[in-house]
Every structure is written in structure tokens, then in C-alpha cells.
Measured scan of single mutants.
Amino acid sequence: ATVHVKGVTYHFDNPEQAEKFAKRMAKELNGEVHVDGNTWHVD
């Protein structure tokens, strides 16, 4: 799974980790999470 945060890409072997990371980053950055298959975007 892949997480894109403000133009930076993070790779996770575990999709659950990717989801938790994306949601945590969105919270910290006051952003929104969008999911597209195995790819998470934090804007």
C-alpha cells in the first residue's frame, strides 16, 4: 500500500498500517484522506 502526503510517498507492506498512517497524518495536517484502491492520498 502507498500513502501520498503533500507530494511525499510512503510505502507500507501492511494496508492497515497505511490506513492508520494516512488518517494520523490527515489529523496532524488538518487534511483530508482519499483512498484509491491500495493508494491513500492526504491533501
Rank of each mutant, 00 (worst) to 15 (best):
A1W: 15
A1Y: 15
A1E: 04
A1F: 15
A1D: 04
T2N: 08
T2S: 10
T2R: 10
T2M: 11
V3M: 01
V3F: 01
V3I: 02
V3D: 00
V3E: 00
V3H: 00
H4C: 06
H4L: 13
H4E: 08
H4T: 15
H4R: 13
H4Q: 11
H4Y: 14
H4M: 13
V5W: 05
V5N: 02
V5T: 03
V5C: 05
V5P: 00
V5K: 01
K6C: 07
K6I: 08
K6S: 14
K6W: 10
K6M: 15
G7H: 05
G7Y: 04
G7F: 04
G7N: 07
G7E: 05
G7M: 04
G7T: 04
G7S: 05
G7D: 06
G7Q: 05
V8S: 07
V8P: 00
V8M: 12
V8G: 05
V8T: 10
T9S: 09
T9I: 14
T9E: 09
T9R: 08
T9F: 09
T9G: 04
Y10A: 02
Y10G: 00
Y10P: 00
H11C: 06
H11E: 07
H11I: 09
H11V: 10
H11D: 05
H11Q: 09
H11A: 07
H11W: 13
F12P: 00
F12N: 00
F12G: 00
F12S: 00
F12D: 00
F12M: 02
F12L: 02
D13P: 11
D13I: 09
D13S: 12
D13W: 07
D13A: 12
D13H: 09
D13V: 09
N14G: 07
N14I: 08
N14S: 14
N14L: 09
N14V: 07
N14H: 11
N14P: 01
P15V: 12
P15R: 12
P15H: 11
P15G: 08
P15A: 14
P15Q: 11
P15W: 12
E16G: 08
E16D: 12
E16V: 11
E16T: 10
E16Y: 10
E16R: 09
E16F: 09
E16P: 04
E16H: 10
E16K: 10
Q17L: 12
Q17I: 09
Q17T: 11
Q17A: 13
Q17Y: 07
A18G: 04
A18D: 00
A18E: 00
A18K: 00
A18W: 00
E19Y: 06
E19R: 06
E19H: 05
E19L: 05
E19V: 05
E19S: 06
E19K: 06
K20C: 10
K20Y: 09
K20T: 11
K20W: 10
K20S: 13
K20N: 12
K20Q: 14
K20G: 07
F21Y: 06
F21Q: 01
F21A: 03
F21H: 02
F21V: 03
A22C: 03
A22I: 02
A22R: 01
A22S: 03
A22V: 03
K23S: 06
K23T: 10
K23D: 10
K23E: 13
K23V: 12
K23A: 09
K23H: 14
K23P: 00
K23Q: 13
R24S: 11
R24I: 11
R24E: 15
R24Y: 14
R24D: 14
R24H: 14
M25Y: 05
M25C: 06
M25F: 04
A26R: 03
A26K: 04
A26F: 02
A26T: 03
K27Q: 13
K27R: 10
K27H: 12
K27D: 11
K27M: 12
K27T: 10
K27I: 12
E28S: 06
E28G: 04
E28C: 07
E28K: 12
E28V: 09
E28Q: 10
L29K: 03
L29R: 03
L29W: 05
L29P: 01
L29C: 09
L29V: 06
L29E: 03
N30V: 05
N30M: 08
N30K: 11
N30E: 07
N30H: 11
N30S: 08
N30C: 08
N30Q: 09
N30D: 09
G31A: 15
G31Y: 09
G31N: 03
G31D: 03
G31Q: 06
E32K: 14
E32Q: 14
E32W: 15
E32C: 09
E32S: 15
V33T: 06
V33F: 09
V33C: 04
V33W: 13
V33M: 08
V33R: 02
V33D: 02
H34V: 10
H34A: 06
H34I: 11
H34S: 11
H34F: 12
H34M: 09
H34W: 15
H34D: 04
H34L: 08
H34R: 15
V35P: 04
V35I: 08
V35A: 08
V35D: 03
V35Q: 15
V35C: 05
V35R: 15
V35S: 10
D36E: 13
D36G: 04
D36R: 10
D36F: 13
D36V: 14
D36M: 13
D36P: 01
G37R: 05
G37W: 03
G37E: 05
G37H: 05
G37Y: 03
N38P: 05
N38R: 05
N38M: 11
N38T: 10
T39L: 05
W40E: 01
W40M: 04
W40A: 02
W40N: 02
W40C: 01
W40Q: 02
W40L: 05
H41Y: 15
H41S: 10
H41G: 03
H41V: 15
H41N: 07
H41W: 15
V42S: 02
V42P: 02
V42E: 01
V42R: 01
V42L: 04
V42Q: 01
D43A: 13
D43I: 15
D43H: 15
D43R: 15
D43S: 15
D43M: 15
D43L: 15
D43Y: 15
D43C: 09
